[in-house]
Write a protein that binds this DNA or RNA. Structure first.
Lengths: 240, 240
DNA sequence: ATAAGGGACATAACAACGTTATGTATAGGC
DNA sequence: GCCTATACATAACGTTGTTATGTCCCTTAT
C-alpha cells in the first residue's frame, strides 16, 4: 500500500477514518439510511469492511459519529448566521438558517434526531438505538445559540415571565416539527412553506415572548423579501 | 373471505390478516421498529413467514398497513376529544390529546410519520421508503379535525388574515415537533414538559390566531390543573 | 542492522434477515 | 367424485452486519 507514513499523502488520502466518515455522510445524503451499508461504504473508499471495525467498532458507532459530525456542522452553520442589532430579526434569521440547513441535508438531519433508525440490524444487541442522547453534547452547542437569541428577544421586549430555556425549547419544537414535515413532503412541493408557514409561525412565537406584533411582522416580511426564491428542494431519495 | 362461523375457530383466531397486523403493532410497541421482523412476527402468530406474503405481499406493505391503522386510531382518538363551547379550550384540549396519544404509542407515532424507517432491508428495491404519503388519506382525516378547531378559534377571535389551513399546519408543526422531541427524551424525564412547554406553546399559537391572551392563558391553566399528574412515560424500548 | 511486536487490512466464513421456490393439504365449484 | 385455486409449511437463496483468521508493513527495542 502506498500510503506512506512520513511521506506526503496526496491530500485525498487523508486519515482513513475521516475518509470513511466523509464517504458515509455522502452515501447517506445520496441514498438515504438504507445506503449506509458496511460493504457499500468499504467499496466507496476502496477498502474492506474490516476498516469499519478497525476505525469505529461497527456500523452502530459509525452512525453515532455521523450524528456527532452532523451536530457539529449544524452548530457551525448556526454560528455563521450574521447577527444584527435587532433581536427579533436575528431570531427569525436563525430559524430560517436552521430550516435551510436541514433541508440542504435532509437525510443527515433525520438521522441526527434518531428519526431514521438506519435499520434494526442484527447482532441482537441494541446497537442502533443510538438516540440523540449519545451525540447530544455537540447538539447542545447549537441549542445554546437559540437560547441566546431568545434571551435577547425577551430582554428587549415587554414583560415576559417565561424562562429563556423553556421559550427556546418551544421555538425549537416548532421549527423542528415544521422542518420534518416539510422534509417528509407534507406541505407539497410548492416551495412556499417558508413564507406561508415557517415565517408566520416564527412571528407568532416571537410575539409570544415579548416582541411587538407589527415589528415582528415587518421583520418576517423583510426576510421573506430577501430570500432568493422558492426553489424546489430535492430529497436525496428523489421520492415522487 | 368471511370469518367462518361454523368452523371451530376459538374467536381469538380471527382473520389471519388481522392477527398479523395486530401482532405487528404489538411487536412494534414492545420492541421498536427492529422488532418488526417477518420471522418474529410469524412466530408470534404461530404461522410461517409465508403468511406475511400471502396476506400483505411483503414486509414493506405490511408496514404501510401498520401506518394506515395508526392513522385510523389517531383520527378516532381525536374525534373522541369532547367539544365544549370554548373554541380556544377545545383547541388546546385537542393538542393535549394529540400529545397524549402519541406518547401512549411512541413507536407507532414515529413509524406513522416515516420517521423510523424500519430498516433499509435488502431486496434492492425501495420497499421501505413508504413515507407518510402512502398512508396519508387516513391521516388527513385527523388533520381535518385540527383545521376545524382552528377555524372556530379564528372565527370567534379578533381579526386574523390567516388561512385556517395554514394556521393549522403551523400548529401541527409545533405539536408534532414537541411530541417527537419529548419522545426522543430531549426534555428529560421530569414529566413537566406539558405544563412547561406544550401548553405555553399552544397558548402562544392560539393568541397568534386571534385568541385573547389572558383567556388563552386561563384555558391553559385550567387544562394543566385538570390533568392527572406528571407521570413517567416509558418508551417501548426502555432506553436509559 | 536485525528481529520481535503490533496495528491495519484483506479474505472468508457465520448468523440473521427478507424473499422466493417448491410442495402439500384443504375448501369450493362442476 | 374430481379439479382447481388458495393458504400454508419447509427449505433454499441473496444480502446484510459481524467475526475469525492470516498477512503484510511499520515501529521499536536490542
Amino acid at each position: 500500500m502506498m500510503a506512506r507514513v512520513s511521506s506526503r499523502k496526496p491530500a485525498s488520502e487523508a486519515d482513513p477514518r475521516d475518509r470513511l466518515l466523509e464517504a458515509a455522510i455522502r452515501l447517506l445524503a445520496a441514498g438515504g439510511p438504507e445506503a449506509l451499508q458496511a460493504r457499500r461504504l468499504a467499496a466507496e473508499v476502496g477498502m474492506s469492511t474490516m476498516a469499519v471495525y478497525t476505525h469505529f467498532g461497527g456500523m452502530g458507532q459509525l452512525i453515532t459519529e455521523i450524528m456527532r459530525e452532523g451536530f457539529i456542522r449544524f452548530g457551525r452553520r448556526m454560528e455563521e448566521v450574521p447577527r444584527g442589532d435587532d433581536p427579533v430579526a436575528d431570531l427569525l434569521a436563525l430559524g430560517l438558517a436552521y430550516r435551510d440547513h436541514a433541508l440542504d441535508n435532509p437525510q443527515l438531519y433525520r438521522l441526527m434526531f434518531g428519526v431514521t433508525s438506519p435499520g434494526g440490524r442484527q447482532g441482537g444487541k441494541d446497537l442502533v438505538v443510538s438516540t440523540v442522547a449519545n451525540a447530544l453534547p455537540e447538539g447542545q452547542a447549537a441549542f445554546a445559540q437559540l437560547v441566546a437569541a431568545v434571551t435577547r428577544v425577551i430582554e428587549a421586549g415587554g414583560p415576559c415571565e417565561e424562562e429563556p430555556a423553556s421559550a427556546a425549547a418551544q421555538i425549537w419544537s416548532a421549527v423542528h416539527g415544521y422542518v420534518l414535515l416539510e422534509i417528509a413532503g407534507f406541505f407539497g412541493d410548492d416551495g412556499d412553506g417558508v413564507e406561508r408557514l415557517l415565517l408566520p409561525l416564527g412571528t407568532k412565537l416571537a410575539v409570544g415572548i415579548g416582541a411587538a406584533p407589527e415589528h415582528a411582522a415587518r421583520c418576517a416580511h423583510l426576510i421573506a423579501a430577501g430570500r432568493p426564491k422558492p426553489e424546489r428542494v430535492t430529497d436525496g431519495r428523489a421520492r415522487h
